[in-house]
């Protein structure tokens, strides 16, 4: 409905008209002659572009509409309540928001140093014959379906965490609340690790591109001052810091929205616990798990409100990342000019 309003009917008339009079040029606004083919092309592409906007607006509209019931009942408290009781129709999203944030942040903590290490290796250290295949494999990691990561995580990583890693950590670092509790295997730590593997290719490949865009003159300036390779790399990292930050934010966006793999290893229990070994739940996982069994209208409405929250968070994070990337590229252009 909204779509019809946004795409002005006039364009369709013009397109039809130009098809009919395809052999003739005709006068457009300001009395200029234009080719009808160009006009079709222009308006057709304009239509497709508008479609994307319409889609996003419609999605937001639909979610706002459906979640109104839950919003009217719980209001802002929805976001700070930790009760999730479909039987009593009492809902609060806090454990899911907490689970999403903690698992994503954990994955960032693990993935960022690794990705930067890979990016620095690829740009500064690796010989050419090695750079290509390694880049290829890093990018290939991004193409593996998330369910594959989930299956691997569930059957290989989780048992290993349960039997080896978590007992080891709790034995030596158990005095920190983060690492206290029974080693379940499934839980926040497992989710964080699987997510870090999944976002690693994004952060690594974008950071590599950003580092490659550092002008040679910068590294050479450092080296000519008698810096070591590592010091010159630090100059390059400082130069590209906002681009790398953008890469991290894009990775964070992916981690926040990731569903299947996390659902399989996080344990799916809506609790808030200080320990990373305890099971948790994320916004994306609860949607995947409970949508099919949501019976009451309030249940559906609460789930949709969670979806809307996730939608808004990812939009904010992604636009933030884009802005940062743009500022980097426009700086480059300014420097070239």
């Amino acid at each position: 409905m909204v779509g019809h309003l946004l795409v002005r009917p006039l364009y369709f008339l013009q397109i039809m008209e130009s098809i009919i009079t395809a052999q003739h040029t005709f006068k457009a606004s300001k009395g200029r002659l234009i080719n009808p083919g160009d006009l079709i092309f222009k308006n057709l592409t304009r239509f497709f572009a508008a479609l994307i906007l319409v889609l996003v607006v419609l999605m937001a509209y639909e979610m706002i509409r459906t979640s109104a019931l839950s919003w009217n009942k719980f209001g802002f408290n929805f976001f700070i309540r930790s009760v999730w009781d479909p039987v009593q129709d009492e809902y609060g999203a806090l454990p899911f928001i907490y689970g999403t944030l903690v698992s994503s942040l954990l994955s960032i903590v693990i993935a960022v140093p690794l990705s930067l290490g890979i990016a620095v290796f690829l740009t500064e250290v690796a010989p050419r014959w090695l750079e290509r295949p390694v880049s290829f494999f890093v990018e290939m990691l991004a193409g593996i379906p998330s369910i594959v990561y989930g299956v691997w995580g569930f059957f290989v990583m989780v048992p290993w965490l349960r039997s080896t890693v978590e007992p080891f950590i709790s034995k030596h670092l158990g005095f920190i609340p983060l690492f206290r509790g029974a080693p379940y295997g499934v839980g926040m730590l497992a989710a964080g690790i699987i997510l870090s593997i999944m976002i690693l290719p994004i952060i690594a490949s974008i950071s590599r591109d950003v580092l490659k865009a550092v002008p040679r003159s910068q590294t050479e300036a450092a080296l000519a001052l008698g810096s070591t390779r590592w010091q010159a790399t630090r100059i390059a990292l400082a130069y590209s810091r906002s681009g790398i930050f953008g890469a991290v934010i894009l990775g964070l966006g992916r981690a926040i929205g990731e569903t299947m793999a996390v659902t399989m290893v996080i344990g799916n229990r809506p609790t808030i616990s200080a320990s990373l070994f305890e099971p948790g739940y994320t916004m994306a996982s609860v949607l995947a798990n409970e949508f099919t069994e949501a019976t009451s209208e309030m249940y559906i409405s609460a789930l949709v409100e969670i979806a809307l929250t996730l939608f808004i968070i990812t939009i904010i994070i992604n636009s933030f990342a884009r802005l940062l990337m743009w500022s980097v590229t426009s700086n480059e252009r300014a420097q070239k000019a």
Partner: peptide, 20 residues
């Protein structure tokens, strides 16, 4: 690294470190 400390260099285009 030692050589470049003894032999400094100035480049064609000014290239100060922009973050500093």
């Amino acid at each position: 690294v030692l050589i470049r400390k003894k032999i400094g260099m100035v480049f064609q285009k000014p290239n100060p470190f922009p973050t500093m």
